[in-house]
């Protein structure tokens, strides 16, 4: 259990670092989505099922879709 938690936490910090580090927005958003997924697993480990479900659905699902739709429109404006 403890080993799993440590691995997940390392993944969490790593994906957060990558999300901040990359300048490309698309990669950042993908890492943010990974971050949310790892966070979901951690919430489950901490026995918070409702919050895990909410984080999976909102953080990993909806937020990613909204971010994607935002950058898909911003790309277009960059060219000029």
């Amino acid at each position: 259990m403890a080993v799993l938690e440590i691995i997940l936490v390392i993944f969490l910090v790593f994906s957060a670092l990558m999300a901040v580090y990359f300048d490309e927005e698309l990669i950042s958003i993908i890492f943010l989505s990974i971050f949310s997924l790892v966070l979901t697993a951690l919430y489950l480990l901490h026995k918070a099922a409702d919050v895990a479900l909410a984080e999976a659905v909102i953080g990993a699902g909806l937020n990613t879709a909204i971010f994607m739709s935002a950058i898909s429109q911003i790309r277009h404006g960059d060219s000029d």
């Binding site: 099922a49 409702d50 909410a54 659905v57 909102i58 909806l62 879709a65």
Partner: peptide, 25 residues
């Protein structure tokens, strides 16, 4: 299921609602 079983299992209105929105997406 998530919406209607909110008082029995994990989940509830917010989570189930977002799943329904995800179908639309």
């Amino acid at each position: 299921y998530v919406i209607t079983h909110g008082h029995l299992t994990p989940g509830g209105g917010f989570q189930g609602g977002v799943i329904l929105a995800a179908i639309s997406i």
